[in-house]
Design a protein around this nucleic acid. Structure first.
Lengths: 210, 210
DNA sequence: TAACAGTATCGACCGATGGTCGATAGAGCG
DNA sequence: CGCTCTATCGACCATCGGTCGATACTGTTA
């Protein structure tokens, strides 16, 4: 049987199902046929909308990063939050981990998902660095931070936050996290050149970690 | 025709050819058949020595990491080098980039090699962190560095060095590197809590970058 | 209503891939 | 020579990502 739908709707259906599968099963472990079965379309239809399985991955990651960046932008603009806090809050709010369910967090970052992971990181860094540029510049002007490398500082903190807490790079045990978060905040402080302890309040904001 | 060789030799043949191919063509882009053709064996022989293509990858990465770790260990033990320098030199010597040819450097870190990359990073961090623990502890004792988080400091610097200069995470242009290296060294200084400019001499050691 | 055009859908088919397995050749030993 | 153990072989398999020509559906025009 043939069900015809408007182009954009079909596209979204495929994207949504693929996202669910890529994240829970992993990119490599998800076959195009898996997607077809759930969306209930034929192979030809899939390749009518996307040139390849990888193109779907790219589109999904672009979506996820864009959503996170928008959350970050909202925070950066919020004048009611102290400037330095805005930066750290934006970095945290941007990570998609905090949105998804617990199972997703566990499944998301296995070695099998390396491709997803790597593409996500590159895309996220490109999108997020400019978002934080302005508030960091302001911090610099106001003498809240002291660094010769503001851009590199942002890049580094974004990278570190992702590698340490979003992916499971170090495979830390649950109990290790409070210490690791404190170390991360201390390093962020030192790189930015803030007053000591300026960021320590963020420890509790990390809430429950993987 | 059937050529019989002793087990360990065959194993090494497969490993060597696979390493060459994985690095130049990428892991996904290298088929088991590609390996078979060059080693000149049948499929059954390959799977007699390895349970899967991925097991070969793991063995190769273990080798590469081990080799790098030994270079690092040699430097760490070398009493003729100032203590802090030993740490930074060990981190640099450990990276396999500096050993391979220029073409390898270019091919190695494309998105397609995400799996290789990720597995390498995890394995390297596990192997290298303990190597640097002792010299950093000594630095701490001698008051050369000042940090409450020596282990996390090592983890972070190893991670940063790899992500920034070994893989092409940020896709920086050639001209950007000197500035990025200086920023990296500055951040390393600040995290370790050394005197300012203590590491700036390492800029020239980075020599030619990708 | 009939003819047409554009779009969306279908599924058989393709070559390549990672992996399996039973058959067997060679080496060493009694 | 015959036995055994290990190393080797290659035909075979299911599955994969991807292609393509046929065709059903929809909106428009006459």
């Amino acid at each position: 049987m043939k069900t015809v739908k408007e182009g954009e709707i079909r596209r979204r259906e495929i994207l949504d199902v693929a996202q669910e599968l890529f994240i829970t099963k992993g990119y490599d472990q998800t076959s195009v046929n898996d997607i077809l079965k759930i969306v209930d379309i034929a192979k030809g239809t899939f390749y009518y909308y996307f040139a390849s399985k990888e193109e779907v991955l790219e589109a999904i990651i672009l979506d996820i990063v864009e959503e996170g960046a928008r959350r970050a932008e909202r925070i950066v603009k919020d004048q009611s939050i102290p400037l330095l806090n805005r930066i750290m809050m934006a970095i945290m709010a941007q990570a998609p981990e905090f949105e998804g369910s617990d199972e997703i967090k566990e499944e998301l970052h296995k070695v099998e998902n390396a491709k997803l992971e790597r593409l996500y990181l590159k895309t996220m860094l490109k999108r997020m660095t400019p978002v934080l540029q302005e508030p960091v510049r302001e911090c610099l002007e106001q003498g809240i931070v002291h660094t010769e490398y503001p851009t590199e500082c942002i890049e580094t903190i974004l990278l570190l936050g992702h590698m340490m807490f979003d992916c499971d790079t170090f495979e830390w045990k649950m109990e290790a996290y409070p210490e690791k978060i404190q170390a991360f905040l201390c390093h962020a402080e030192r790189m930015l050149g803030t007053k000591e302890g300026e960021l320590s309040g963020f420890l509790q904001m990390f809430g429950q970690m993987p």
